[in-house]
Nucleic acid binder design. Structure first.
Lengths: 333, 333
DNA sequence: CGAAGGGTTGGAAACGTTTCCAATTGGCTT
DNA sequence: AAGCCAATTGGAAACGTTTCCAACCCTTCG
């Protein structure tokens, strides 16, 4: 079934039918009604391939997710999609195995599909530097800042990771902790790792403590298993630690397990603070004190940025508020 | 840039170029080499819109996920995608707000995009009955069985939910529990709820206990918050319960929290068994005894079914093995 | 009354592929 | 030398839209 079938059956020309379908002007009320009626009757659906071929754009909005299993991203997608569909846009999600090739994948996708917009959940700004020079569509990087890249179409929405990590660790220091371990990310890892690590370092230094990376830090991927193993190694190496700061909730969750496995309790023996405020930290036993990234806000803002970008707005770099939410995993010593 | 540019520059016709690009026969080695060379030189990428318009097919494989936040599905997507890309297929994921409209969404998508294959993560077979009559592409339903629907192109891969639930509850009964509560799903909910509920009922009956739905059952959505609230209500109503069977790990996780909130311990005061074996039950404190659904196997099998279906195979209904994994949340009374 | 102009309309051209068919080539066979 | 056949090739047609332009019909105005 074709737009021509609709034209024939409704008694109008294809041009008029096309205009009617797309809500364009220069169609009489009479014609519009008749055409819509015939469309409904025949159950006609426009062919997106033909449409996008002609319009030279394609897939509504492409979302790239790197790091399957990052709970925060799962929580961002819902609101993001909701906001976009409310404006009549659709999204299509692609999972990327490895965060490092995100820009390459995106570039290929863009070349091939010409999406209207692109959203990156995770992925390090660095990798956009080389291979993402000419973005055709508005793009937004969520949870990392792309400000210093200053690419014309690449926006970002994120919290101030450094300040948040500083607050998290200061929280521990203020409660009397002096032997504090850090787990997650990696020293020469992406922006997020670096920023959070630097924030932690700063807070410690402000309290007269120098972070000994050799002894009190253990890197790992942002998955439960990573946190479990890294915290295990850290605890075995430095049993006098009274607190652990995990660079992400999933890491904290794994760390919690590792702590318990050694017969220690949280917060009795070691205090724990996470980062992200996913459902993991809300429902774990004990509940974990963490930095709240407002997933809903992140999702909605990202959607807005894309929408505005499609409307011609230039790239922006938003900082959304964060919050330290105190729960039961930190003890005053 | 066009296929015609490649044709012109390489000195061959568009037909030959097209054949060379698609690895079809009837292209001399000489021509193929030259054409590939020119393509690389010009950085040419075929336009998928034009291609799919002509081929009358589109998006590689469409994946529909219903119920954001279901950890099991997150774990299935990775292996699914891995298997598919290994065969040169790509996937595109769409999140559906509400499980009930999955068939409608799929039908629309199919009409508009003509995907090569479709996979449904979650979604109840019932909703496919009416609106999914003529599937053009092979489709597979994961975690529910579509066997009784007997649709020509709709396959399914799932575990035997009823038997697994029976095993889970029997496990509790064999350890001396007589007052067992059940949380999650709903009585007139989808296939999964029904099957697991029936399995629980059967196991109880085999041990001389009749499940009192009014008193010992509390329905809820498959999210942490649901489990938390439902288990809370259940516990308040029937404080003499010594064990709880949750219809999903996320529900169990929420329930664990509710139990602890009431000053009770797991497994000291109440034993708990979950269902799915997501990372939640592996890392929680205590670790939760649960039914393992092998996410990787589910994902890989689903991919296989789609691949075979594209090769012309007809619908199959696979049952993959499950396993009761004993951890620390069940006590013998 | 003729011209001008705004709102509609129809249809051809174009978007970038794949595919079909006819034409060409070159090596064998008879 | 002529005839065949297979392998290769070129190019037109088609896929289903959108858009541009010309044509048309009314009003309205000078």
């Amino acid at each position: 079934m074709d737009i021509r079938d609709i034209a024939a059956k409704s008694g109008y020309g294809v041009g008029t039918v096309s205009r009617a379908i797309n809500g364009q002007p220069n169609v009489s009320e009479r014609a519009r009604e008749r055409i819509l009626e015939v469309m409904a009757e025949l159950g006609y659906e426009p062919n997106v391939n033909a449409r996008y071929l002609k319009m030279r754009t394609q897939t509504p909005v492409a979302v790239f997710v790197t790091g399957v299993g990052n709970r925060l991203f799962d929580d961002v997608i819902g609101p993001l999609q909701a906001e976009l569909v409310r404006e009549g846009e659709d999204i299509v999600v692609t999972y990327l195995e490895d965060g490092s090739n995100v820009a390459r994948a995106a570039a290929e996708y863009q070349l091939a599909r010409h999406p209207k917009g692109m959203v990156f959940l995770g992925g390090d700004p660095e990798c956009f530097r080389t291979s993402f020079q000419e973005v055709g569509a508005p793009a937004v990087l969520v949870t990392s800042s792309a400000e210093e890249l200053a690419l014309p179409n690449l926006s970002s929405v994120t919290i101030d990771n450094e300040a948040a990590a500083r607050d998290a660790v200061a929280h521990l220091c203020e409660r009397g902790h002096r032997r504090i371990g850090v787990v997650g990310g990696s020293r020469d890892g992406g922006q997020i790792s670096s920023l959070r690590l630097r924030g932690a370092e700063d807070a410690l230094r402000a309290h007269g403590i120098e972070l000994d990376y050799e002894r009190d830090y253990e890197p790992c991927d942002f998955i439960e298993a990573g946190g479990f193993e890294a915290a295990g190694r850290l605890l075995d190496r430095a049993p006098d630690l009274t607190a652990v700061f995990a660079l992400g909730d999933v890491v904290a969750f794994g760390a919690l397990r590792a702590i318990c496995d050694r017969g220690l309790t949280v917060p009795g023996d070691v205090s724990l603070v996470g980062f992200d405020d996913t459902s993991l930290s809300q429902y774990s036993v004990p509940r974990i004190t963490t930095i709240r990234q407002n997933a809903e806000l992140l999702g909605r803002r990202a959607a807005r940025v894309i929408l505005d970008g499609m409307g011609g707005a230039s790239a922006t770099h938003e900082l959304v508020p964060y919050e330290l939410v105190e729960r039961e995993s930190v003890r005053t010593v």
